[in-house]
């Protein structure tokens, strides 16, 4: 059992497994944010949805005995916060980014407040699908212990891409995001489209939170999220508002987060704080490289060009 998987191959597999494990919450939050931003609003508060989702998912799973009810509850909690964001932002002069920050504060505060009672108990967790059964190596098998939520997320990404390109509703969302004037000319209710996009986005972010508490790392406490919800917002820009790219970007971020511990576990111990900063530096560099004041980003909703 030992030896065969030591060294860099082990790191590679660990990073791959980590990409999936750590990346799944990123995936859900970024898909949610992508949907919201396509409709022309930024919801910076998805960190609040994520934490609130993690808490309510764990709480409901514990109280009901069903982890899947927990996931649903997490989504609903996220949707509620999303609805709050949408309703506030459609008022005149109300800044969507500021509301996002406020909701982040409110969501995490509420989750911590209500979540006190659920730090101790052990709730039923989500099961995993063993996709690595073919392999003789326990390492590969462990890396391929895939959660159903990841599969759903992986399918959701191309589905959302298709939705934006081909579905009528998808076109509506895009039109509203590209140009309010055009949307009004087409007789679309801008606020309503944005409302549903933000609520659905909030739902997805809540589900992403339930992955944290119900699967990986799989418990509820106040330090559970280290800002994944905030990072996911950055990730959407990184992925240029393309749901399929969100999927790849989430894996990349997840893998980058797994890199530090993986390198230390084979004895490369220098500068782990700097390795921990890798995802941020990477995003920043790519943002700088792909932005230009002359050229609007491909895929960027029109409402974002000021």
């Amino acid at each position: 059992m030992s030896g065969e998987h030591a060294g860099l191959l082990g790191v590679l597999i660990a990073v791959l497994g980590g990409a999936i494990r750590v990346g799944t919450p990123f995936l859900f939050v970024s898909l949610g944010e992508c949907l919201t931003e396509k409709s022309g609003r930024i919801n910076l508060g998805l960190e609040g949805n994520l934490v609130m989702g993690a808490m309510s998912g764990y709480a409901i799973s514990y109280l009901s005995g069903s982890a899947w009810l927990g996931v649903l509850a997490a989504g609903l909690a996220g949707a509620l916060l999303g609805a709050l964001h949408a309703l506030l932002c459609q008022q005149r002069n109300v800044n969507d980014i500021a509301v996002g920050i406020a909701l982040m504060l409110f969501g995490t505060g509420l989750a911590f407040f209500l979540g006190k009672a659920f730090i101790q108990p052990t709730a039923p967790r989500l099961p995993a699908i063993a996709l690595g059964g073919w392999s003789g190596s326990p390492v590969v098998r462990a890396a391929l212990e895939i959660n159903v939520l990841f599969v759903i997320g992986a399918l959701l990404a191309p589905a959302m891409g298709w939705f934006f390109r081909n579905a009528r509703w998808g076109l509506m969302v895009r039109t509203v995001g590209e140009s309010t004037d055009a949307a009004l000319a087409m007789g679309l209710d801008v606020n309503r489209v944005r409302f549903f996009s933000t609520v659905a986005g909030g739902f997805l972010a809540g589900v992403g939170g339930s992955f944290l508490s119900l699967y990986y790392p799989g418990s509820w406490n106040e330090g559970l999220s280290s800002g994944q919800g905030l990072m996911a917002v950055a990730l959407v820009i990184f992925a240029r508002w393309n749901p399929v790219s969100c999927f790849y970007a989430s894996l990349l971020f997840g893998g980058a987060a797994a890199l530090g511990p993986a390198l230390q576990s084979v004895g490369i111990t220098w500068g782990y704080y700097l390795f921990n900063a890798a995802p941020y530096v990477l995003t920043l560099l790519i943002m700088i490289a792909t932005s230009s004041s002359r050229r609007t980003l491909t895929g960027m909703p029109g409402a974002f060009t000021r």
Partner: peptide, 26 residues
Amino acid sequence: QVVFTGGWSNPVKEAESANSMVDQGI
């Protein structure tokens, strides 16, 4: 084998460190 997570409470890193180490045969 030691892994320093860099903070007193960072569940994702702790879980990731645990998994990496098990992958290394620990």
